[in-house]
Structures are given as C-alpha cells and as structure tokens.
C-alpha cells in the first residue's frame, strides 16, 4: 500500500539565498582566522599531545633567541639583545693547574690541528625545556690530549670571562661571578663531550657562548660553561657555580635524570622548543648507552 507522506523538506527548511551567501562569507572569515593561527609547526607538534618529538633540529632563530646566559641578563631574550658588547677576537685562554705546559693560548692556536666535528645533540635544560642543536666544534678529548694533563689531574674546570663592561649582567649579584663549571677527567675524555665553536655551520653567536663553550649532552645545560677563558686541571673536584649557589638543587654531576626531581619541580618531563606540550625525559638525556658506564656503582640519587 502506498502511504502518502508530506515532502521531507518544507519551504521553511530551505535556506534563504541571502543567508546562504552570508554563510559563505562566514566560512571565508573563519578560514582567515584559522590561517592567522600560529605557524602550523606549532599546532602539528601540539596535536601529537605530548608524544615524543622527533629529534629534528630546533630552528636557528629559536636557538639564538632563547638562551640562558645570566652574564647578559636573566631572561631568555636578554642574551640575544645584550651580548653585542662581548668582544670575542682576540680571545685568550689560560691553561693552568696539573698540566705539563701551563700557558696562555690564542683561541685559534689552541684549535690548530684538532679535527673538527659536527654533532647534533639533544639539549635538556634543568628548567624543563629542551632543544636539538646541530653543533660544530672539536671533541674535548682531543683538546685535553693536546694540553697534556699530568697523571695527577682528576678533574677539569672551565671558567667564563669575567668583565662587567663586556658582560653587563655581572653587575648584578644574581650569581657569584665568574661562572665556573667542571667535569671529572674521564667524563671530559668521553667521545660525546664537545667544545663547540659553531651552530648550523656558522660561528657561535655571542649569546650562545662564543667563541667556545662546553657541551655535554647527557647533562643539564647549565654544565656547559660559555665564553671560556680559563681551563684548569685539578686533583680535586672544583666548586661549580650553581652548586655553590644552591647545593641542594644543583649537583656537580647534573646528569639528566627523570627519576631524580629538582627539589622544587619534576624532571620527569620536558617541553621541546617548538611544541606547546611536554614529553618524557630520558635517562642521561637518551645517551645512557654511551655514558651510563661512567657512573657504574655510583648512587645517582646522591650524586645528582
């Protein structure tokens, strides 16, 4: 039997043409708003909701405008704004302590004859953010070999330039100046440890620690002393800046360790620059296979 039904659509349901056209205008406007949203890279990474990011190098712009270098101010932007006062040429490095020939070297002479390397490393800041940096430089072990430490040398210490005129941030007492960092000698001899002189095949910019800085990718970023003017070989562990400042918060070793929290905040996760959300932090910043053996038998909770 045929059942008569009223038509599915009444005239009421048909959109008036003017409204229909209006909707097009709306869609166009919405499209404009969406296209005005920040670069797709940010959203693409964000939408992956905290999944581990690929280790694609961080943009040169981000690497050179988001820096911790208190000698030029305590905000992330200040080093890029203020580091112009640093004069990196000529640059002299004093080599002292338990070494066969203590001497002052010109920066270029010091590097002469040492093979240059390019290394892309993850960089994890103790504050909970991270980057991926394509470094250029030399292996620290090659430099140590060239400087010929004596058999008494057990530690190596790196001192940053101290000069209020060139580094205006040193006028504030925010840290005890000059900035000092150090490694155990066997850590310094590890093939991952680098003296960086460049990023993205360009010479280091001042805000990144020109003309030379330490890079130890399995440790928190603050271990990487910048704009180094003195290298000292020592029998005993050197006093290092953040460790002096807050011994309960920053250890001498400062190996990246998601299981050992900073006393005030968690170290389990990190925000990769370029992403809005956080991802898991890896033990030794993902370099455990290479470096964990350096610390066999050590209590990493105590030696944080």
């Amino acid at each position: 039997m045929l059942i008569r039904r009223p038509p599915d659509l009444s005239t009421r349901d048909i959109t008036d043409e003017s409204l229909y056209l209006n909707r097009r205008a709306w869609l166009a406007a919405a499209g404009m708003v969406v296209s005005a949203l920040p670069t797709s890279r940010l959203w693409a990474k964000t939408l992956s909701l905290g999944a581990p990011q690929d280790d694609k190098p961080t943009s040169y712009k981000d690497l050179t405008t988001y820096n911790n270098f208190y000698e030029f101010g305590t905000s992330k932007e200040q080093p890029a704004q203020n580091a112009g006062t640093l004069k990196t040429s000529p640059w002299t490095i004093s080599v002292e302590g338990e070494v066969k020939k203590p001497a002052k070297y010109d920066f270029a002479d010091l590097l002469k004859g040492l093979p240059t390397v390019g290394r892309t490393y993850r960089h994890r800041c103790v504050e909970g953010w991270s980057m991926v940096i394509p470094w250029n430089g030399i292996q620290l072990k090659d430099l140590v070999a060239k400087l010929e430490p004596t058999s008494n040398a057990k530690f190596i210490e790196f001192t940053t330039l101290m000069d209020e005129k060139q580094m205006p941030g040193q006028r504030s007492g925010v840290l005890p100046w000059p900035y000092v960092e150090g490694l155990r000698l066997d850590e310094a001899m590890h093939p991952l440890a680098l003296i960086a002189t460049g990023i993205y095949d360009k010479p280091l910019l001042n805000q990144n620690g020109a003309p030379l800085r330490l890079v130890t990718p399995w440790k928190y970023g603050f271990k990487g002393g910048k704009s180094i003017v003195r290298i000292r070989f020592l029998r005993t562990q050197p006093a290092t800046t953040w460790n002096i400042q807050a011994p309960d918060e920053y250890g001498f070793y400062a190996n990246v360790n998601p299981a050992v929290d900073h006393p005030r905040w968690s170290q389990a996760r990190e925000r990769r620059i370029g992403s809005l959300l956080k991802q898991a932090t890896l033990p030794f910043n993902g370099y455990a296979d290479q470096v964990a053996s350096l610390y066999t038998g050590m209590d990493l909770r105590k030696n944080f």
Partner: peptide
C-alpha cells in the same frame, strides 16, 4: 601576539 607567533621560542611558558 600568540596568533602572530610573536611569543618567542617557548610560547607555552
């Protein structure tokens, strides 16, 4: 500033 991507390298922070 966020929509212009003008919040620097770490906009979330």
């Amino acid at each position: 500033r966020f929509l212009r991507d003008d919040l620097g390298a770490n906009p979330a922070e």
